[in-house]
Design a protein around this nucleic acid. Structure first.
Lengths: 335, 335
DNA sequence: TTGAAAGCGTTACCAT
DNA sequence: ATGGTAACGCTTTCAA
């Protein structure tokens, strides 16, 4: 049998209420009885039962992080940043991978009365009405870019990709590049694409020469083989580009591989940039110049927003800045 | 206010007990009342409260997977295989990253009365007594290799690295290699190292020529930079090896990079093999020949063992076979 | 400063 | 076939 609060009370010679007061120090307690209770707790190795506790407090102190695909190295540090901040406030956080239908997770979140959810998965994996159901059921939600949602209902952390794309093009421009391709991988079904908008703006601002945007298959392409395939496609269309910006580091890796196989050296013959700064970017050959997302920071900001929402009720918004990290996949044009 | 079972009962004109019977179809119910209840549930959008349910059934239907490091691509498919099997049986599974102290998670598992835990993290991240505490508290545990534990208390899924290492050496042997280095990365504190044992056995069996084992720093080295560093060390010691086996694909990646930077081509000048078959292994340049772990399968077997333990009480054991996947990082010796 | 007792939303035993 | 109700382990109001 499980040792309960009643056992502790009996051993300490106090009431069950007193045990609660001591454990939650929710009320002044005589130092003497306090000690007796604590000793009894120690002796019986008593652990409060969160299930029973949740039932009465209406707080589970449990949070969930929902990611697309646990394999994606981009998420690792975001989750870490979130969890570290959450643990500090006493929350238990668990990660859910969106391999199966994410909507089903939502049902579970409601049944289990989670206090809050951080959803990193893209909109393609679930239905927005289901997300609102969570909110209606009192579960606070913070989302991460990529999802159009009512900011009065859910909080949001976003990355400033538009500015970052401007910086990326600027970096290549300063190296003398004028003919730049953008391997986007996004398809037309994406309504609002800040990276694409940023690229188009930059094309005008810097008065670039030849430019092209390579789209992917619906709903979107974003993995190593996608980068490989789109880079091959680029070469088959036109070889005049001296630099390529890729949607993310994964695609940059694939693109570099494609260029190498076609006899182009990176960066001597063609410069390649990525986005995100996933752990492998630094170890790739050549190490990839990228627009880094401060990932752990983004995660901790997400928790902050969620916490405010849980405690005060209001949603919030945070825009994350990216940083250029120069490595070896970009160099002076035509050198 | 949350709609409860009482609301449903009132609307359907039955008792709360009847609602339970219908929802859990734990008892014969007149088709007529059944319909009335179901209609009421629908109308009120009633969702059973797992918290309250758990309190009385002593089952939370919640499982946890504990991994070292969520970023490690090796774990992705293992977790997937486990979760898919678990979802089928109605469990909610959440993943915990072992960034912080894993022992603290264990405390939480007890408080939250999880039904079971799949622990993939290595022993260095927690204390074995704490793991046994879980078992004492009635939480079933299945572990994944690397951990010496009492198999009467916890179940275990393991990879047959000894046989796999034999196959790896055999593959190189068949390609004509006789001088083979093993970049182990493990340190002396590891008591039982099946890969190392397998290598030593194979050295004798195949009567190899020059061989060497490169250890890492305590507790162990297993990442890309570790592979890079150890490969550099190998070159500084002796250049007579025509093939290198690495602890895992990550280290193989680092090693390949080191060789390239030192003017050695892979596989023309030196063959390199890894273990695991992580997603990137196929995309690396060159694609890496590796001993693949059937990961998703391993995960589903872990759940099977856990399920048996939860339902019948007995622990179990499963040994997973690895498969050689030939890619481009190994080739005929001296060609 | 401490205790008694009323819930929290279920399930399951015991009646009917 | 259905309903009443104790029990699960905890918190918190109200009294003392």
């Amino acid at each position: 049998m499980r040792t309960t609060r009643a056992d502790v009370a009996k051993l300490a010679g106090v009431s069950t209420a007193t045990v609660s007061y001591v454990l939650n120090n929710s009320r002044g307690i005589a130092e003497d009885t306090r000690k007796r209770v604590l000793t009894a707790v120690e002796e019986l190795k008593y652990k409060p039962d969160m299930i029973a506790r949740s039932l009465v407090t209406n707080e589970t102190m449990q949070l969930s992080v929902v990611v697309d695909n646990i394999t994606n190295p981009f998420y690792g540090d975001i989750v870490l940043g979130f969890e570290n901040a959450a643990i500090e406030k006493g929350y238990f956080v668990n990660i859910c991978t969106g391999y199966k239908n994410i909507d089903e997770y939502f049902e579970n979140f409601i049944s289990r009365r989670l206090d809050g959810v951080f959803i990193v998965a893209t909109i393609y994996k679930f239905h927005i009405e289901k997300l609102y159901r969570l909110v209606d059921e009192g579960i606070k939600v913070v989302k991460c870019e990529n999802i159009e949602a009512d900011l009065r209902k859910v909080s949001s952390v976003e990355n400033d990709y538009m500015t970052a794309m401007n910086d990326a093009v600027g970096h290549l421009y300063n190296l003398g590049h004028r003919n730049i391709a953008y391997i986007s991988g996004q398809s037309k079904i994406l309504k609002c694409d800040p990276k694409l908008m940023g690229f188009q703006k930059a094309v005008e601002k810097f008065k670039l020469g030849n430019t092209v945007v390579l789209e992917g298959n619906a709903p979107y392409s974003s993995d190593i083989p996608d980068g490989y395939n789109l880079a091959c496609k680029l070469l088959s269309i036109d070889k005049s580009y001296s630099a390529v910006i890729c949607l993310n580091d994964l695609m940059a890796m694939g693109a570099i591989k494609a260029f190498n196989e076609n006899g182009l050296r990176v960066p001597e013959d063609i410069s390649v940039m990525g986005f995100d700064d996933i752990p492998y970017a630094a170890y790739w050959d050549p190490p990839i110049t990228t627009m880094a997302v401060p990932k752990s920071f983004l995660g901790s900001k997400a928790f902050e927003l969620l916490y405010t929402n849980m405690k005060k009720g209001n949603t919030g918004y945070f825009m994350n800045r990216l940083q250029l990290i120069e490595r070896k996949s970009t160099s002076q044009c035509g050198v």
